[in-house]
Simulated scan of single mutants.
Amino acid sequence: MAGRSALTARRARLGAELRKLRERAGMTTTQAAALLGTSSGQLSNIEVARFGVSAERVRIAAHTYSCTDQALIEALVAMTSDRKRGWWEEYREILPSTLLDLAEIEHHGTGLDAAHSIHIPGLLQTVDHAREIYRQAVPELPPPDIEHRVSYRIKRQEVLYRENPAPYRAVIHEAALRMAFGGPDIARRQLRHLLELSELPHATIRVIPFEATYYPGSGQSVYYVHGPVPALDTAQLDQSHGPVFIDAEAQLAQYRLLLERLDAAALNVEQSRELIHKVAQGL
């Protein structure tokens, strides 16, 4: 059994998934620990990510819990081997841990889906646009904190440009295009940046126009990161106090359905580009 090391989003998810497997098997920690040849305290520490766990232990646990989903088992095993420090660790003492978790989840995602009604998705923002967003934060952020968050947000965008990037899809309401944060010049450059990114072969950017007769959901921003198997997907919601992560299967299914309906409401790619260009010209 691996010892203590820095808590990461990946380790936390692995522990949570092992707990789900145990609970589905109808076992208490005491019962499971006896079968696994460990103590209930050690098992609890693995499930809450205080301790790491080896690939062999994951396979043994899956067998003990009668898990027959081989794709899920292999995905969980893979999560035990990647212990390299990601670029986000340089922000460990600077930014909230939830922001670092977002970068880590995103880094390992196999597909990225964003739906926004008021804001341009973070991965698509220019430096100036991102800075204006953070300047309007409540409570107000000190200038150094603003710059740290801006640099972090731009660093996250590397997932769009790395070798073999994950497919990225964004559905943006026209209202977000017309929110001229920072004034016309910044807003115009932001929209031109959107048009440039829409040309990336792995990026799809679509717009829901004001003329659309419906807008599914409550208008909240949704960021959906696909895992190696659907059970390891993560939905991220923006809240005033920071990002909130969702990994319960029933909730994930709801957000997948919501994204499908938003996608159905959006213009096609070419129509979306035309609308973005039209809004930019009007600034």
Score class of each variant (00 low, 15 high):
A2Q: 12
Q251G: 07
R13C: 04
I105W: 10
I276S: 10
G242S: 06
M179G: 11
Q136S: 15
A176M: 07
E47G: 02
E260G: 13
Y168N: 00
A115M: 12
L43I: 05
R273Q: 13
L194K: 03
I172S: 01
Y134S: 03
S54V: 00
R149T: 02
I73A: 05
I94N: 03
R261K: 15
L237G: 03
R13N: 05
Q271N: 12
W88F: 06
W88V: 06
E23R: 13
A253P: 05
A33Q: 08
A175G: 09
R131M: 08
C67L: 14
L112V: 10
E274R: 14
G26K: 02
Q220W: 11
P142A: 04
R131H: 06
Y215C: 07
Q42M: 09
L258T: 05
A235S: 02
Y214V: 00
R59H: 12
I146P: 01
S66Y: 11
R10A: 07
I154M: 11
E163M: 06
R261N: 12
V53M: 04
R149K: 08
A130P: 06
R11T: 00
S218H: 13
S198L: 05
R178S: 09
E89H: 14
L267M: 11
N268M: 03
R156N: 03
I118A: 13
L95D: 03
H108K: 05
E56A: 15
R162Y: 07
A2F: 04
G86K: 05
D185I: 13
L252P: 05
L21D: 03
P139A: 02
I73D: 04
D185K: 14
G227T: 04
R10E: 04
L100K: 00
E17R: 01
A266N: 10
R85C: 09
I133A: 08
A170E: 01
Y255W: 02
E93M: 13
V58D: 02
D113A: 13
K84F: 12
G217A: 01
K155T: 10
L18K: 05
S221I: 11
R131I: 02
A12R: 15
L259P: 03
V171I: 15
L76C: 10
L112W: 07
R59M: 12
D101P: 03
I208T: 08
D145I: 12
A265T: 08
E89Y: 13
A16G: 07
H129G: 07
L72Y: 00
T80M: 01
E199T: 12
R192M: 14
L100I: 09
Y214H: 11
S39Q: 00
A170V: 08
E196D: 15
Y91K: 00
H193P: 08
S66K: 14
R59L: 13
A2W: 00
A187F: 10
L36C: 03
D69Q: 11
P96W: 00
E74P: 02
D238G: 08
M79N: 02
G52W: 08
